[in-house]
């Protein structure tokens, strides 16, 4: 069976591969990771003087999570920028109307845009392997962790990418779309953390109910769970919540160690919803008037 490429993905990859932006982007990405690596190494080295000498190597295992977190942060910043300018960029180039007159559905256009951003990010992550591999030299890590990390970063790319594409569908100007996508993204961090925080503050140690379920959609909590699970096996929600602390659903997720998987599922679902909303918004037969300014 022949795999049929989404034409948007193919075009975007062709165009991106020929631009200097990708080269400079890769250079900046590698440079940021290398700097983070050297910085952590320097801190460990400096601190090693006050430790017992045999502790130095055991502390080197923090290199992996630190580099991974740096990558997650970069991806979180880059993907919304790529996708937020995806549709508004097509509108600015006046190519979006042409796409809509073809047989592609608005959803396949939106999906193609998110996928091309995710593939671009995969290129960045793949290019970072040599730097990441340095953290394996010092030991204490399994190669499977790199695979899990790849899956997690893909999820993050899809999640932030779908927010970016949704913002792009709402705005005509790319810069406004980028700002809006960061606002929505920030809103997710804050709004999903608020209910459990309020519950904790005003509950004074009593049962916090199901308010913690909002955290399933919080990327910070997801990555905290992910890295803690990999590094120590002990996390905030992994078998640590007792029946009296929270509601039954939260307790079950914690008890059966399902939190991270359900969180990943929820983030994917929300991503899908954002893409659906973006597709709805860009469909000229659904949204507003679709008035285009004449040159």
């Amino acid at each position: 069976m022949k795999i049929r490429w989404n034409p948007i993905v193919k075009k975007d990859l062709q165009v991106t591969a020929r631009s200097m932006r990708i080269s400079w982007g890769l250079f900046a990405y590698e440079a940021a990771l290398a700097l983070a690596f050297l910085l952590v190494l320097a801190i460990i080295q400096e601190e090693a003087d006050s430790w017992y000498s045999d502790n130095f190597y055991s502390y080197l295992v923090v290199l992996f999570p630190v580099l991974a977190v740096v990558q997650v942060c970069i991806v979180t910043l880059i993907v919304p920028i790529i996708t937020a300018s995806a549709i508004s960029g097509e509108k600015e180039r006046q190519t979006f109307d042409l796409m809509l007159t073809t047989c592609m559905t608005p959803f396949s256009i939106v999906f193609g845009k998110v996928m091309s951003a995710v593939i671009n990010i995969l290129l960045f992550v793949a290019a970072s392997t040599p730097v990441m591999a340095l953290s394996f030299v010092v030991g204490g890590m399994r190669w499977s962790y790199l695979f899990y990390f790849l899956l997690a970063i893909l999820l993050q790319a899809v999640f932030s990418g779908s927010i970016g594409i949704f913002a792009s569908s709402l705005c005509r100007k790319s810069i406004v779309a980028v700002l809006l996508s960061f606002s929505i993204y920030g809103g997710f961090y804050v709004l999903t953390a608020l209910p459990p925080l309020i519950s904790m503050i005003f509950g004074m140690g009593r049962n916090m109910g199901e308010s913690a379920l909002f955290l399933l959609l919080n990327p910070v909590v997801f990555f905290e769970e992910f890295f803690m699970l990999l590094m120590t096996g002990e996390t905030m929600f992994n078998g640590t919540i007792s029946k009296g602390d929270a509601g039954i659903v939260t307790y079950m997720l914690s008890h059966y160690n399902l939190w991270i998987y359900v969180s990943a599922g929820c983030m994917l679902l929300v991503s899908f919803l954002f893409m659906l909303m973006a597709a709805w918004k860009v469909n000229p037969l659904h949204s507003g008037t679709g008035v285009r300014k004449k040159k």
Binding site: W5, P7, K10, K11, Q14, V15, R18, S19, R93, Q94, T95, D97, L98, M99, T102, C103, M104, K295
Partner: peptide
Amino acid sequence: FFGVYDNLKVKEYMDMYGSM
């Protein structure tokens, strides 16, 4: 309006719309 992309050749332009 023309609606063209930088860094895309004529053949690739036709190819893209054909795929669409």
